[in-house]
Design a protein around this nucleic acid. Sequence first.
DNA 1: CTATGGTAAATTGTAAACAATTAATTAAAT
DNA 2: ATTTAATTAATTGTTTACAATTTACCATAG
Lengths: 225, 225
Amino acid sequence: MSDFLATGLSTAVQKKIEDLVLQGKLQGGDKLNEVELAEMFGTSRGPIREACKGLVQAGLLTAVPNRGVFVRKMDVRQALEVYDIRAFLDQLIGQLAATHGTEQQIKELWDIHARLDEAVRVDDFEAYYPENLAFHEKLLAMTGSERLTQLYLSLVKELHLFRRKGLIQQGSMDVSNAEHALILEAIAHRNPVKAGLAMRNHVMTAKQRLLTAIELQSLNEPVVP
Amino acid sequence: MSDFLATGLSTAVQKKIEDLVLQGKLQGGDKLNEVELAEMFGTSRGPIREACKGLVQAGLLTAVPNRGVFVRKMDVRQALEVYDIRAFLDQLIGQLAATHGTEQQIKELWDIHARLDEAVRVDDFEAYYPENLAFHEKLLAMTGSERLTQLYLSLVKELHLFRRKGLIQQGSMDVSNAEHALILEAIAHRNPVKAGLAMRNHVMTAKQRLLTAIELQSLNEPVVP
DNA sequence: CTATGGTAAATTGTAAACAATTAATTAAAT
DNA sequence: ATTTAATTAATTGTTTACAATTTACCATAG
């Protein structure tokens, strides 16, 4: 390991394995071979095992005694469970952001929203996606709650495990950003309840989009493979 | 390790260390010595280190590079953050319990509530405490959401890190169980929104009790020690 | 041809040894 | 006497070696 690391080898390895999972290079159900990973990162098996323990606790991997660790397989049901949880956490985020956000932060949210609108206008999802992330991360920063931030980001990672082809839709950017506007107005007016409900609604509509997308897909695949 | 364990040594060790923390035998800020723990459990340091990695991810321990792991120190601010999160998770729990709970489960809730009332009548906190846990665990079971259950239990454990003398009050059992009644009625009437709000309120009043208790304590300790 | 059993390879689980960093102690100097 | 430097001890980080379990393969019986 020649890398620069101020936080220990196992932690660095944990981040790298996490990347492999989130980028989809390791997919749901895949088995993680310890010696393989050790050679890949140029370490021994010790740090690999420690890293995996952490990722199991984080919900990205699952451990089977004497069989090893596997990338967690997330089915539709579990994904919907996480959407529900996220919806209520987002409600809290909206409340806190409206309460504790500074005027400067609100201004920056408007800036991001303007860029999102531009991406909607030219129908550029590649531009929309990172700005959307920035929008929600700015909201997180406005809450001032470390634990909430950590928990929320953890759940977002978890949802990355659920990636059936195109089910997390690229469409409906316009609807999504209209909802952003409602959230922003409520925050700008310092209305925590309204901001919270707008946030919760924002996630619930995303959940609903996923549900309809699943229904559509199941119509195209009517018989058992 | 002569113990019976179907899930690996490091996992068993993790549970034991977790117990040490939750029982307060290891207190906030305490340093965990690897060789000491290894001798204590009759293992080598490997499983200890793996267990600690898991507990760090779970939020019960904190790791400092080249210095070791310590029991996480939770201040008032962090505890209040967790209360807020729990409040909104409990709202979701209430909604789901009212939606998916079976009539049998609702009946069992009434039974627990009756025992809680009896404990209130004779002012027996030792009897109240475990039944209160049972009440909330029954609600969790009614949600049918594994992830929500896991997350909620994890946050409850986290709150155990915050234990200043008597701040988690034993009093106000009567108020607490009156809130339980409101929750139960809403669930029995299959009113998810009402049940959710009653649950959130239940946690927020607990948070408020903590806040007032802190204020009272700070009045008794006016000067810096 | 399928099923069963047994042996060998591969992989995980644990322990012990080694390296590197941090904490503690002692000695010297201002 | 207090501070600073140097040396030693203790502890963490990592690697290597060993044990136990699982998986794969092949032979043999039905």
